[in-house]
Design a protein around this nucleic acid. Structure first.
Lengths: 345, 345
DNA sequence: ACGCCGAGCTGAACCGGATTAGTGGACGGC
DNA sequence: GCCGTCCACTAATCCGGTTCAGCTCGGCGT
C-alpha cells in the first residue's frame, strides 16, 4: 500500500504552494506558462490523480450519477433494454470519467428512500428515472429535494423534470397501419403493467389507432414476464372462434413475444399463417427464433447517451427542457404476414 | 436547494463541540448518556446524514465497490447472469448502504486503465473481477496496486486474489453422466470463448468426463452470441451422417441453447427425439420455449452476495481465502430424452 | 525618480467529517 | 483537607483539494 502523491507533494517538488499547483492543474490563470509546464511534468511523473473525496468535499458535488431499477431480478435479467441503456449512459459518462451508481430496489418506496439517502449524503449529483408510473410518487419527491433528475420516457406527469423520450404513439400507429395493410382486422396487444406511464401511452395510442382504422383492438395487461405473456396469449386465442379471435398480436417486450409464439404453437396455430406476431424492442432474441420476429427497433444506447448528457447539464444548473429522440422503427421479419382468410370467403 | 445540516449545526444546537457530536453519532465513549441522546435527537430532527465526501476524505476509504464488465453490449443484454449477479451483490451491499459502481469497458486494456484510475482517485475500495481469462492481465495489476479484489470464478490463475466459485467441473460430469444414462454416446458442447478461464475449466472437465465414459465428446468455440451458437450447431449437425453426428449438445449459455434449438429444427431434427439439448444457466428463457430446456441451475444471486461479503472483508484488511459455493444442479425438462437408435439395431 | 499596474505567486481559510491531546470539575481515598 | 483519578467534554489538527485576499516585484508612463 503505497502512499499516493498529493498536491502538497507536487508543490514541494516544484518549490511552490498548493495554490499554484491547483491553478496549474486546473488550467486557470495565476501561474506563468513555464511554471505550469514544470508542475504538470512533476504531476505526471508522480502519477498524481485528484482524490475524488477531497474534490467532492471542496466543491460540493459528488461527481457521479445514480440509477435505481425496481423490477424483480428474475424478469429484469431477461430485459436487454436495461443493459443497453446502461451501456449507452456509460458511453457518455466515461467521456468525463463520471461513474454511475447502479442499484436495484424492492419497490418504489425503497427507491424513494434511496434517493433521499443519496441526496442527503451527496453521493450523487443526480439520477436517471426509469419506468415512470401514472401519478408517480418519485416526481414530487425529487422536486422537493431539488435533486437533478432526467426522466426516461414520455413527458407526461414529469412535473418540472426534463424528459428524454421517443414517440411510442407513432410507433404503435405504424404497427397498426402495417397490419391493416396486410389485411388484419382484429389485432390484440399484450401489454406491460398498466400503472406504467409508457404502457398507458401505448395503450391509448393502440386504441385510437385501431378505432381509427375501424378495427377491433383489445389489450391484455401483464407484468412483462414470459409466463404472463403466454397466459395472456392463451386467453386471447383459446376460447375464440376463428372468426372472432385476433389475427395479430403486438407484445410490449420481446420475451413475451417469444412466449406468445410458443403458446400459439401449443394451440395448434401457425405463425404467421394463422397469427402474426410483433415484438417491442428488437433484441438479438428476435433473430434467434423461427420464424424471426418482426419488431419495433430503437436506438436504446443512443437514448441512454442523450439522457446522460441531459442529466449532466441539469446537474450543472442549466435549465433543460425535454428531448425527443427518434421514434422506434418497424423491422420486418417473418413473424408477420397476410391475415388468414377467416371470413370463409 | 436547501443547505444540509452538518455536525457543526448539531453541535451548536446542542451546545457542545463537533467532537462531542462525532462521539455521540458514532457510538463511541466520550459523552454521557443523556448528552448522547440529546445529540441523537437533534440529529434526527435536523435530518442529518454524514457527507460521504467528508467521511471518505477523513478516513481514507471510498465506501463503495466497483464492477467492470467488458463484453459487447449487444450480447450482454441477453445474459441474465449479469443482472442476477448485480442484484445479488446489491442485496448484500445495501445492508451497509454501500453503493456499487458499474461500468462497461471496451476491452481488457480499458478495464485495467479504469482500475488504475479508480484506485488512484480512491473512488472505490475494491472491485469484483468477472470473466477471468487464461493468464489474465488484470490479476498482476491488481496485486501490484494492492487493490482489494474478489474473483468470481475458479481459483486458478488468481494469484493472491480470493475467489468465489462453484464446481463447474462437477456440473459437467453430472450432465455427461445423465446423458450417458439416457443412452447417448456422442455428445458435443458449444462453448464460450476459449480464452475465458471458466470455458477452459468446462472444456477440460467435458473431455475428461466423455473420455472416461468412453464417449465421443467434441467442443466448438463461440462468442456466446446466438448467431455463433446457431452456426456451431449447424456445423455439428449438418454434414454428419446419423451414425456419427452428436445426439446431444451442451450449450454454455441459454441464449445459444435457444438458437441451437432453432437451428436443429431448421435442419429437420426433432428435440429431443433426434437431439437432446442442455443449457447452462437456467433463466426464464428456458421455460419459455417448446420444449422447455433442461438446464444447469445455480444460485447466481447467492453467488453475488457471497462475493460482496468477501470483498467487504478483503477491503477491511482481513486476509480472506477462496470460497466454494454449491455446484450447479441439473434441472430436467423436456429438451433431453433417450438417445435415438442410430445404430439401426 | 516616482507612482502605478498587473502578472505571478503566497498564505490562510474552507469544505465536513474523525481523531487526539488536553482541560476542568467532581468525586473518592487516606 | 489534600491529592489523584476518572469522566465529560473542548480545542486543535488532519484528510486533500479549491478559492480568495493580499503581497512582491518588474516594467511602464510621465
Amino acid at each position: 500500500m503505497v502512499k499516493r502523491p498529493t498536491m502538497q507533494d507536487i508543490a514541494r517538488r516544484a518549490g511552490v504552494t498548493k495554490a499554484a499547483v491547483s491553478f496549474a492543474l486546473n488550467g486557470r490563470p495565476g501561474v506563468s506558462e513555464p511554471t505550469r509546464r514544470r508542475i504538470l511534468a512533476i504531476a505526471d511523473e508522480l502519477g498524481w490523480q485528484p482524490s475524488s473525496a477531497a474534490r467532492a468535499l471542496s466543491d460540493g458535488r459528488a461527481g457521479s450519477f445514480g440509477l435505481v431499477i425496481d423490477r424483480p431480478a428474475r424478469t429484469l435479467g431477461l430485459e436487454p433494454f436495461f443493459m443497453q441503456l446502461i451501456s449507452g449512459i456509460q458511453a457518455e459518462l466515461v467521456r468525463h470519467t463520471t461513474p454511475l451508481l447502479l442499484t436495484m430496489a424492492e419497490d418504489q418506496a425503497a427507491e424513494i428512500a434511496l434517493y433521499r439517502d443519496w441526496w442527503a449524503r451527496r453521493l450523487v449529483d443526480g439520477v436517471f428515472v426509469v419506468d415512470l408510473q401514472l401519478g408517480d410518487a418519485r416526481v414530487p419527491v425529487l422536486e422537493e429535494l431539488g435533486m437533478p433528475a432526467v426522466v426516461l420516457g414520455a413527458p407526461l406527469g414529469t412535473g418540472s423534470l426534463p424528459a428524454v423520450w421517443s414517440d411510442e404513439a407513432a410507433a404503435v400507429a405504424t404497427v397498426v397501419s402495417h397490419l391493416r395493410q396486410l389485411g388484419h382486422r382484429r389485432i390484440a396487444r399484450v401489454a406491460g403493467p398498466a400503472r406504467l406511464r409508457h404502457t398507458w401511452v401505448r395503450t391509448t395510442a393502440f386504441e385510437r389507432a385501431t378505432r381509427g382504422a375501424g378495427m377491433a383492438g383489445r389489450t391484455v395487461e401483464t407484468d412483462y414476464s414470459g409466463e404472463r405473456g403466454a397466459a395472456a396469449t392463451a386467453e386471447l386465442l383459446r376460447d375464440a372462434a376463428p372468426a372472432t379471435r385476433p389475427t395479430a398480436i403486438l407484445y410490449d417486450n420481446d420475451v413475451m413475444a417469444l412466449s406468445g409464439l410458443t403458446a400459439a404453437r401449443g394451440l395448434g396455430l401457425a405463425v404467421p399463417a394463422d397469427l402474426s406476431i410483433v415484438a417491442w424492442d428488437d433484441s438479438a432474441l428476435c433473430e434467434l427464433v423461427d420464424p424471426p420476429l418482426t419488431a419495433l427497433s430503437r436506438d436504446i444506447r443512443g437514448y441512454g447517451a442523450h439522457a446522460a448528457r441531459r442529466l449532466r447539464e441539469a446537474a450543472g444548473g442549466a435549465p433543460v427542457g425535454d428531448l425527443q429522440d427518434a421514434a422506434p422503427s418497424l423491422t420486418l421479419r417473418r413473424s408477420t404476414g397476410p391475415a388468414p382468410d377467416t371470413l370463409g370467403g
